[in-house]
């Protein structure tokens, strides 16, 4: 659905995006994570044919950038960073204007459908200037969806929204992904990315990492299992370390911290070995790394403290 080859953008000699290589599958929800100025918005602007790349290219919804940008724009929808609505016009008039620009046949029917879908039908005649931030964002999403594009770009869709409005938007995005649409999401909200995205690309001018949220956690920190022991002894480290699948062992307080590739498969072996060596195992837990840990580790080049994380 989207293939990006060596995409680079420079502004007055300053590189905003460097040599981006990526393939996004049809129906996938893909998230770009990165600090401010990392090139996320620039990337979305290039992929939606709003600005031209300095070098490299991409195919979006079957169209190559720069070859038929009008057709490309007809097949993608974009929710821009700011809702960008006409405050003096009603919600209905805002949508019908864009519906006409996209050449939709049944403008009234389509506008009604999306206003109802996003719960704005009752207030369709009111000027958008009277709407709350959440309502404006919903209307902007309706506008991006109006022509039913196969690819949808969402640039920070929940930024600045109250928790309730943000949850509504997230649920709507989850619903969209169920329809088989390809969604590319720019976000600072790591929890949102974790919940919504099939894969994540951590971008800081260059693509620093690319994988599923779970795999990224594993790649960056491994999976750390905690054995809570009633009688921690120094030799227990060696008991565990002899197994080839154990990546690292450390003991701390009454806990033995073991880094493993596949805890579900290897935990029984380790518990058995520890019991045989005389350990009294109270319980076994796992330290779960948040996506925030992964993100901070990647963008700060490995500066995150390894002790962070919540045991489950």
């Amino acid at each position: 659905m989207i293939r990006i080859e060596g995409l680079t953008k420079q502004f007055n000699g300053i590189t905003a995006v460097e040599n981006l290589e990526l393939e996004i599958r049809p129906g996938e929800v893909f998230g770009f994570l990165g600090p401010n100025g990392a090139g996320k918005t620039t990337t979305l602007r290039m992929l939606s044919a709003l600005i031209n790349p300095t070098s490299g290219t991409a195919w979006v919804a079957g169209y190559r950038l720069g070859e038929d940008d009008q057709a490309l724009r007809r097949n993608v929808g974009i929710l821009t960073e700011a809702p960008g609505l006409y405050d003096r016009l009603s919600a209905e008039r805002n949508l019908s204007f864009f519906a006409h620009l996209y050449g939709i046949d049944d403008v009234d029917g389509r506008v009604e459908r999306y206003l109802k879908l996003l719960g704005l039908w009752e207030r369709r005649s009111e000027p958008v200037g009277t709407f709350s931030r959440g309502m404006r964002q919903k209307l902007a999403i309706a506008r991006a969806m109006l022509h039913e594009p196969s690819v949808l770009f969402l640039d920070e869709p929940t930024t600045g929204l109250d928790p309730e409005a943000a949850r509504l938007i997230r649920e709507f995005i989850e619903g969209l992904s169920g329809e088989g649409r390809t969604i590319i999401l720019n976000t600072h909200n790591l929890d949102e990315a974790d919940r919504l995205c099939d894969r994540i690309g951590v971008l800081n001018t260059r693509l620093l990492a690319l994988d599923t949220p779970t795999a990224l956690r594993r790649e960056v920190f491994g999976r750390k299992v905690v054995f809570h022991l009633a009688n921690l002894r120094p030799q227990f480290e060696a008991t565990v370390a002899k197994f080839p699948f154990v990546e690292a062992v450390e003991s701390k307080d009454a806990k033995l911290l073991v880094t493993l590739d596949d805890p579900e498969a290897h935990n029984p072996t380790l518990v058995s070995a520890l019991v045989n060596a005389g350990a009294q195992v109270r319980f076994v837990g796992e330290i779960r790394r948040s996506l925030e840990d992964v993100y901070l580790h990647l963008v700060s080049n490995g500066g995150t403290e390894p002790e962070r994380g919540n045991e489950t």
């Binding site: 009008q70 724009r73 974009i78």
Partner: peptide
């Protein structure tokens, strides 16, 4: 302008 320019 950005949403407007994103149309065909």
């Amino acid at each position: 302008l950005e949403p407007l320019l994103a149309t065909p």
